[in-house]
């Protein structure tokens, strides 16, 4: 029970004074006036049981009789019960009122609030999850879209950068070195800002999704390029010689012999990068895209409810876990020829 006892007490006194003010104008309610005052005194002395006993003496109103004293007494009793952390008794008191006056909104709201308190915590969390899930699912779809676009684009870009870097043509290797240097050496956030907010001043205005895929694609191409280059250069030099010795061109040797052998070696670091990518898509929320992180942030700011953030964390974990398993599977498959 986390309803403040003091708060309920103060509400109880306020209601009592209001009632006394009303009762003062009605000669018929004079008995009750006395009774409420006494019970108020008892409450002030801390004798809640005594106050309850007095309040219970107010009978059901007879036909045509004023209902206010009865309703007030039962609602007051309900507040005292709630303050005593006995919500079941409080609800029972409210229901006495509701039996006679089913439309009494005060009694109804109080019952609803008490019942919400009676529910276990997980129930509240569950209902929050159900409430937040649609918005987060939408965000997740956007996150996945970004991830898949980047996964389509960046290995190709990375391969080109890697081949360019090991090219014997100086201008090409220098250019690829520069691209790698630039996109690895500046924050992704800055690159996204530049592409989305900076390029319009050069007359190029991009949709948020386009800007995001370009930014993520270039950044991840730079990282993957170095990983792919490392993998290519780690393949035994004899493989290239053997390929050349049967008459293959450099391109044929790369395509048929060298690059297929890098797949297994590529999987662990590339898996790492793609897991980082899933989380890096959160940066895209800064350029007006509502992906998972942004969706969670909006829910958090609207409801001030931490469940939204926890749920987002769980979804990120789910996605990265799926990726981990997929990459382990691919790594195994890619290296199957090494198994004896």
């Amino acid at each position: 029970m986390n309803v403040s006892r003091n708060y309920l007490m103060s509400r109880a006194f306020a209601a009592l004074f209001l009632l006394l003010a009303l009762a003062g104008n009605s000669p018929a309610a004079m008995d009750y006036d006395q009774l409420f005052r006494q019970s108020g005194d008892l409450m002030a002395q801390g004798d809640l049981e005594g106050a309850l006993k007095l309040l219970r003496q107010v009978p059901l109103p007879a036909a045509g009789e004023e209902a206010a004293p009865f309703v007030s007494s039962r609602m007051q009793a309900a507040r005292i019960h709630a303050a005593q952390e006995a919500p079941d008794k409080a609800i029972a008191a409210c229901q006495e009122v509701l039996k006679l006056y089913p439309d009494n909104s005060e009694a109804r709201n109080f019952v609803a609030a008490l019942q919400a308190q009676l529910k276990p915590r997980w129930h509240t969390i569950l209902s929050d999850i159900v409430r937040f899930l649609p918005a987060l699912a939408k965000g997740t779809i956007m996150t996945l879209l970004l991830v898949f676009c980047t996964i389509l684009v960046s290995p190709l870009g990375g391969l080109l950068l890697a081949l360019g870097r090991i090219s014997t043509l100086r201008p090409i290797s220098a250019l690829c070195w520069f691209i790698t240097w630039f996109f690895r050496g500046t924050p992704l956030l800055l690159q996204l800002f530049f592409i989305y907010y900076g390029l319009p001043s050069l007359g190029i205005t991009l949709a948020p999704l386009t800007a995001a895929v370009i930014g993520l694609g270039l950044n991840y191409s730079a990282y993957l390029g170095e990983i792919i280059r490392g993998a290519i250069q780690s393949i035994d030099h004899g493989q290239m010689e053997a390929a050349k010795a049967i008459g293959m061109s450099y391109g044929q040797a790369m395509r048929r012999v060298i690059i297929p052998q890098t797949y297994k070696r590529l999987m662990p670091p590339v898996g790492n990068e793609f897991i980082a990518l899933i989380k890096d898509t959160a940066l895209v929320s800064t350029i007006a895209m509502v992906e998972l992180m942004r969706a969670a942030d909006q829910l958090f700011n609207t409801y001030f409810n931490i469940t939204a953030l926890g749920l987002a964390a769980a979804i990120y974990l789910l996605l990265t876990t799926i990726f981990t398993f997929i990459f382990e599977k691919i790594e195994y498959r890619a290296g199957i020829y090494e198994h004896r």
């Binding site: 004899g238 010689e241 053997a242 050349k244 010795a245 008459g247 061109s249 020829y337």
Partner: peptide, 24 residues
């Protein structure tokens, strides 16, 4: 490169360490 490949295709070479293509 084309001419060199053509020549290599006519000359077979066997290496000390085989250099078979492990993925095939």
């Amino acid at each position: 490169p084309q001419a060199i490949s053509t020549l290599r295709a006519e000359i077979g070479m066997v290496f000390q360490h085989f250099h078979l293509f492990p993925h095939m």
